[in-house]
């Protein structure tokens, strides 16, 4: 019994990386390729407001891809579309060979079990402590014995540096800690990809540094595919393999962080260099200033 348990524990150990990271053939879709997420001609609108107007994106397997753009350009919406929480008005979203918008509930939930998502707020369940939050997906989707769940949870928490915080309630965590716990929960089921929604927003430099390092480390150590949605240019560019810049419903630039830094596009340059004025004006559209003052 003890030997069997040891073997099972080894099976789930972080250190047995090869077996742990290899994805079995049956877990991938019919047309598994180097591109994990393929978005074509994506159109999506909320009422009258067009969010995406013909977006094409490719997210390669095993890489860390950043999707950046000014606030309100629909970056979070894009993650929700990839996760099947929203349905596009037109176009296709293919994840691991499966057309997300055509999946039934069961197939969609099967796909989501292979995805992890880190929400901006962490989205920890407030009635559960840190340990139970990380154990939540394991208890919901597996029949593992409690002793093994305990080991797995402690391993995930160790990976994010919060094994000692297992008994804390979400209300007792700082923003950075909450996101790290949420990250441990997101990797609990060993997903094929993780989507990060604004992971660096509101973080102090130490938490930010920890998160930046963790995201890159987990991506490489676990052979994940990562999608980061963010407008924190420096931090995101520092760890990304490829960057898409979205604005006004379209992809306005793409390439390696270095290439985008040297882009000729005024809009891309304004965003990457954080210039206050440019194609995206500093001033909200208004009537002439002088006229406005004189005709009070």
């Amino acid at each position: 019994m003890t030997a069997a348990f040891r073997i099972m524990r080894q099976r789930f150990s972080w250190t047995v990386s090869k077996n742990y990271m290899q994805r079995s053939a049956e877990t991938t879709g019919p047309a598994a390729s180097e591109t994990l997420v393929k978005i074509r001609d994506l159109h999506f609108a909320r009422g009258e407001r067009v969010i995406f107007d013909g977006v094409d994106l490719d997210i390669p397997r095993g890489r860390l891809t950043a999707i950046m753009g000014p606030s309100g350009t629909g970056k979070t919406t894009l993650l929700r579309l990839i996760g099947g929480q929203l349905t596009p008005d037109r176009g296709s979203i293919e994840v691991d060979g499966l057309q997300v918008q055509e999946l039934g509930r069961k197939a969609l939930y099967d796909l989501r079990r292979r995805m992890g998502m880190l929400f901006q707020s962490g989205a920890l369940l407030t009635d559960l402590n840190v340990f139970d939050n990380v154990a939540f997906p394991l208890r919901e989707h597996t029949n593992l014995p409690e002793a093994m769940i305990r080991d797995l949870v402690l391993m995930k928490l160790q990976a994010v540096g919060l094994r000692g915080a297992r008994d804390l309630q979400p209300s007792e965590l700082s923003g950075g800690m909450a996101r790290r716990v949420a990250l441990a929960r997101a990797i609990a089921l060993d997903p094929m990809m993780i989507m990060y929604d604004e992971p660096f927003t509101g973080q102090d430099p130490i938490s930010m540094g920890a998160l930046v390092q963790l995201i890159r480390l987990l991506n490489d150590a676990l052979g994940l595919t990562s999608i980061i949605v963010s407008h924190d240019v420096q931090e995101t560019a520092a760890i990304s393999d490829y960057v898409y810049v979205i604005s006004q419903g379209k992809v306005i630039g793409q390439g390696s962080p270095e290439a985008l830094g040297n882009s000729d596009s005024a809009l891309v340059k304004q965003f990457m260099q954080g210039l206050p004025d440019g194609p995206v004006p500093f001033h909200y559209p208004a009537r002439d200033y002088m006229e406005d003052l004189l005709n009070a």
């Binding site: 989501r112 929400f119 989707h141 929960r185």
Partner: peptide, 22 residues
């Protein structure tokens, strides 16, 4: 309502757990 506002329900959905059932 607060679970919805703090994205806990959306988080469950993304963990393939149906919030209506759970």
């Amino acid at each position: 309502g607060l679970m919805k506002a703090t994205e806990q329900l959306a988080g469950m959905e993304m963990m393939a757990v149906d919030p209506i059932h759970r």
